[in-house]
Design a protein around this nucleic acid. Structure first.
Lengths: 339, 339
DNA sequence: ATCACGGATGGTAACGTTAACCAGCTGAAC
DNA sequence: GTTCAGCTGGTTAACGTTACCATCCGTGAT
């Protein structure tokens, strides 16, 4: 409860001026060793710690050594892995990280980013919701550097790190086609989420390229979480002429499909790798991406910007990796099709 | 790049004094509606946003509306679920959250907490490494409120939220005993981690209570991550007189055991529930705890402290839940023991 | 003895905001 | 017409730090 000691207190105790204390604390040259020792001693005695709020205010020209990290949901393994690698990069550079989850809600995104910006963050690693275009433009005009991860910010001229969602999905679909599947269902989260849209386009393109029509009865968007996904699968399987294979647009949806299809009734390939995918029966084939690499790259790009890199916005596309574990070959229909 | 507008700029544009702007921005009464409107207009025109760094400096008596969250590893699903619920509570109250991972390294913990404290956080939700006792005492003397989660801070008089690790473990061990197992191996992370120690004690007590000797060949501490755990299992199973059952001290170790025992060669019960545990073959029985509840409770307690609650430190113990999925009944030895 | 110089230290003003007063103005009551 | 209350708005001084400049002292050259 005792008021925190300030440089003034330290100065009084050490019998020197405020400025000398400031110099010692900042590790600047130009202080005699004995004087410095006396100051250090006073600092220890009082338990003094610099107030970085005051410091940041005074030297506002410099950066505040704080960044903001805004993701969809911190509890999601994909985003938490990403967050950890952003935090590691920040720690290496002596930066602090403010975090916020948006829940894919533009209003909460706005709240969070606004609060971060009021705290004078130097930059943001952002998984954008898709809203708040004008708002972000205003933030960037104020000097806040922004780097998008996982999804680009539509209509915003910023750096972006993401994977090639279309190509990754197309590979997965071709894998299913090669196993003889033609009735391949698509399960995805809300189409407004850029990654989901891209993956759906990849699905459509791969199907069309194979000369197949996309059956709208086999398409489900807007699946939030595994429960809804499981229900969608059960629903489709109960209908007439069910699919023989499913493509799932993210890890949670894949989980739902696994729950619904524990009895090997259909083939399944999902986007995003997940823990124990290889230990299931059958092991699940996936399109895998590396969230830690995404986070690391994003952070590095952001710190480059903070250090003054003002080249044109970059767009980094990382590759996905298809991991064939066998689940694409289940329940292959007899040759000849359904005619 | 343009310098951020300040209240001064807004005042000039609106043709009022600085104080009037401050009052409008803070939403204080005592400003005529028309004047306020003029100020609002200027704010919009300039894109003004309050500088909370300056604000916090001036009103240091009040709190800075920022808390720090320090966990072992943000990428670990357990901690990320906890983090998300802490963040939700903070968001509801208009607080910001700084995060840091310690990697169970007291030095990094110290770095991170020190930086948070220099930023004048009002409180900390902390998963303590076990080191830095004196350091934390100093921080708390400065007025930083601390609440520990998952593990108590030994020798520190602070609030703590954790589960009953001994009782949870004992339940698991008794479950295995009831299935006829007597050679039950213990696999855990570093014993210096409080939870691991507690779980080991629970194991020992349950074994002794059943009149069984604890065979040191069946004990492995210090397993960091699933890979080491899998190797430990393989090693034990290859030895003479292998165990018929394993208890694993955390989720990652359980994962390793699953990897090593995919072929149902032994019984297994683990601490911490995990995604897909029920979809494995066999489904894995676990002692489950609720990380979101831990985080929520910790945050609520912390905000209570920040709001002035200065009652004696509380210790909240949440119950664990044993989920029997069948993996405890595998490979039951023939009655009569090993003689 | 004087001067220039460099290293050490101190004084002062700012950073952007708010707390605590204080000064006008209006209008109503006497 | 004076007074006082009530409201609006302004002035000043902080918060804890650092940028900038001034001062002081000892040394060596002239």
């Amino acid at each position: 409860m005792a008021a925190r000691p300030t440089m003034k207190d330290v100065a009084k105790t050490a019998g020197v001026s405020l400025m000398t204390v400031s110099r010692v604390v900042a590790g600047e040259a130009g202080v005699a060793p004995q004087t410095a020792a006396r100051v250090e001693e006073a600092i220890r005695a009082l338990g003094y710690q610099r107030n970085d709020i005051a410091r940041n205010l005074r030297r506002k020209a410099q950066d505040s050594r704080t960044i903001g990290l805004v993701v969809d949901d911190l509890a999601n393994p994909f985003f938490s892995a990403l967050a950890r690698s952003v935090e590691d990069e920040a720690y290496r550079r002596g930066f602090l990280v403010l975090v916020g989850s948006t829940n894919d809600d533009p209003r909460r995104e706005r709240d969070v980013v606004s609060a971060f910006s009021a705290r004078q963050v130097d930059g943001l690693v952002l998984v954008p919701t898709g809203g708040n275009r004008a708002f972000f433009r205003a933030q960037m005009a104020r000097g806040v550097k922004v780097v998008c991860v996982d999804r680009p910010a539509t209509g915003l001229d910023v750096d972006c790190i993401a994977v090639d969602n279309r190509a990754g999905t197309a590979t997965a679909i071709r894998h299913l086609l090669n196993h003889g599947h033609t009735r391949i269902a698509y399960l995805g989260d809300r189409q407004e989420i850029w990654t989901q849209h891209e993956r759906f386009v990849g699905y459509t393109e791969a199907m069309t390229a194979a000369g197949l029509e996309v059956d709208s009865l086999l398409i489900r968007h807007g699946l939030r979480g595994h429960r809804e996904a499981a229900a969608a699968v059960a629903d489709m399987m109960a209908g007439p002429n069910p699919p023989t294979a499913f493509f799932s647009g993210n890890d949670l949806v894949t989980l739902g499909a696994v729950e619904a299809g524990a009895s090997r009734r259909f083939a399944l390939v999902g986007f995003d790798d997940f823990v124990l995918a290889d230990k299931l029966d059958p092991p699940i084939s996936v399109v895998s991406q590396d969230p830690a690499a995404l986070g690391r790259t994003a952070a590095q790009l952001l710190f480059g910007r903070i250090d003054g890199d003002d080249a044109a916005p970059r767009s980094v596309v990382l590759a996905t990796r298809f991991i064939d574990r066998g689940s694409g070959g289940m329940a292959v229909p007899p040759a000849g099709g359904v005619g």
